[in-house]
């Protein structure tokens, strides 16, 4: 098991998504192994696993028909487990195949409205950042989807944590709109540093850089 897990990790590092099914088989056991990698300690592996789920959503939705329900459940604290990677997966699956996430997507979208889970002192910042990324992926495809939560999303650009500000900025850059543009202009001097997963690469960036790139993207 450990050997094959390592081989799976290598394929994801190399972004060889079709090869994952060819090597490990197009069946549920492979999908479970991928779910397990959402908890990988190495951030890049987790994010590539997210991209793999997006690939599955587009190419083999039959393999992940049940997945979204389970990912949503893992965000419920009654589940007894922590839904690391779940919001990102739902965002990526939704971006590639919106039909797969119809039932669950509102839970992710409205997640940021709950102060218990999204504001200090009890929040899980990693999950919140994942949700913000998912909003960018979902809203980037269809901005209307996330309009209801725009005011709250905008407020996260003022969060004390740079990772939250940075991801909120990136997300706004995907979604667009006059309010987004205006808020991004206010972030172009923010020197806070964070990790951003974009175009399947994980890079350290300042919030300022993210904001500037987002504005450039919106103005193209």
């Amino acid at each position: 098991m450990k050997r094959s897990r390592q081989a799976l990790v290598e394929l994801l590092r190399a972004r060889k998504y079709p090869e994952v099914l060819v090597t490990f088989g197009a069946h549920r056991k492979t999908v479970r192994s991928l779910r397990s990698l959402l908890y990988a300690e190495e951030a890049l592996v987790k994010w590539r696993t997210v991209s793999m789920f997006g690939w599955l959503a587009a190419e083999r939705p039959d393999l992940i028909a049940q997945e979204v329900d389970r990912l949503i459940w893992s965000l419920n604290d009654e589940a007894g487990s922590i839904g690391r990677g779940a919001p990102e997966c739902i965002g990526e699956i939704g971006r590639n195949n919106i039909g797969l996430v119809q039932h669950g997507v509102d839970v992710v979208i409205h997640y940021i409205e709950d102060p218990e889970t999204c504001r200090p002192p009890n929040r899980n910042t990693e999950i919140l950042v994942g949700v913000l990324w998912a909003l960018g992926r979902l809203g980037g495809g269809k901005p209307k989807r996330v309009q209801k939560v725009m005011p709250v999303l905008l407020s996260f650009t003022e969060d004390p944590d740079a990772a939250v500000r940075g991801m909120a900025a990136w997300s706004l850059g995907q979604i667009g709109g006059a309010d987004a543009t205006a808020r991004l202009q206010g972030l172009t001097e923010d020197a806070g540093v964070t990790l951003l997963y974009e175009d399947e690469q994980l890079n350290e960036k300042t919030v300022a850089a993210i904001a500037r790139e987002a504005l450039a993207h919106l103005n193209r």
Binding site: E41, S74, G80, R84, E116, T117, N124
Partner: peptide, 20 residues
Amino acid sequence: WKHGGLVGVIGYGGGVIGRY
């Protein structure tokens, strides 16, 4: 006790039950 945020240790999806 109430519903609250999710908690855990890095690398694991379970083993810790959050309670607030």
